[in-house]
Design a protein around this nucleic acid. Sequence first.
DNA 1: GAGTGTGAACTATTTCACAGCT
DNA 2: AGCTGTGAAATAGTTCACACTC
Lengths: 214, 214
Amino acid sequence: MYTSRISKQTIKRLAIYYRYLEKLHKEGRRTVSSHEIGEELGLKASQVRKDLSYFGGFGKRGVGYEIRTLALKVSKILGLTRSWNVCIVGAGNLGRALLRFPGLKEKGFRIVSVFDKDSAKIGKPVERDLVVIDVKRLSEIVKAEQIEIGVITTPAADAQEVAELLSKSGVKGIINFAPARVSVPETASLEEIDISVAFSSVAFGIITSEEDSD
Amino acid sequence: MYTSRISKQTIKRLAIYYRYLEKLHKEGRRTVSSHEIGEELGLKASQVRKDLSYFGGFGKRGVGYEIRTLALKVSKILGLTRSWNVCIVGAGNLGRALLRFPGLKEKGFRIVSVFDKDSAKIGKPVERDLVVIDVKRLSEIVKAEQIEIGVITTPAADAQEVAELLSKSGVKGIINFAPARVSVPETASLEEIDISVAFSSVAFGIITSEEDSD
DNA sequence: GAGTGTGAACTATTTCACAGCT
DNA sequence: AGCTGTGAAATAGTTCACACTC
């Protein structure tokens, strides 16, 4: 269907539109214009319309977009109408924080297992019905539980190895929080969330804005 | 100095180069070529050279880059040669995980206080020498502790309010982990780390690669 | 010979501007 | 009249290609 070249940036904006549409829907609103969406999210109205137009003409000229309909269309595009089995590799602070991160379950991302290689952690409960499993059993469990998305929250040194293990086990998408870039086969979908890079980027921004004002 | 228009993407790559340079340095290596950096990080050599050239000619033709010198230059550019006082707003799971996130302290990001509005959390220790402080005291403490960077790990509904409070209190840079976009004054530096958007983006990637192979 | 630094060419993304529905 | 959908224009970012240095 819409399999062609849509940029990752467009997809991320779509996910942000979706969140805003849900909010409007909860407030009882029925329609919204591209101008209003852009206003709220800090984007040009034309950007919003262009992003949506890649997937079809969802709006009504002279009116705007019907919130309920558009939210449904966008959730379909983003794969939010089905559920996804997710595993977390690395039962440290960040891994455990993600177990309770708000909004994931509601969007269909179900964290069904947590792995670690540390024998002190293996077997310990991390959530009502979850216990840390030895990473040696990852492949077996990914298959048994039909896990499609793996989240890496290990130390940097283990990230590449875990990425390969996940890919080989049949995981289709990876989200990497470890402070190291990983590479995965072309066929897998990868998202890198680089926390320490974000800090450096902010620090750079502060320095340059101070220089500008000299 | 190099105050002009450098893209955020270039800065983020610089932070990634820096991490790789540190690794090479620890391994005892002395020089590296743009080709090798690109190979390791999945970028074209010309991209690496272009990024570095914005800030000066750091390399030697025929030789490459002297790792120690380049690492020092890049760390200067990114503001990693000084330290930054950071506060976290929101003492939930994610906020507490960030307190121990590896590499931040080493890069000079010192988390000096943690705030929350929940009276059940206020006063409780979160780390050796840190206790959760009432967010009402944020402005006072930001000034007293000379905090320049604020990290938002509150629920989405509180994120915009906290961003404004931080800006008004004199914080120059904000990193927002809440699943909501925030807006800050032009003068402040902002980085949004949108975890649920990353999940949606990966889900979209999986769906489209499955369609492609039909 | 090897590898940088950089203008020029190319590609991707954003924004404009306006025809065309409702 | 209001607001979408979309080619065309403008802008931003990447990659090429090669002169130049070590």
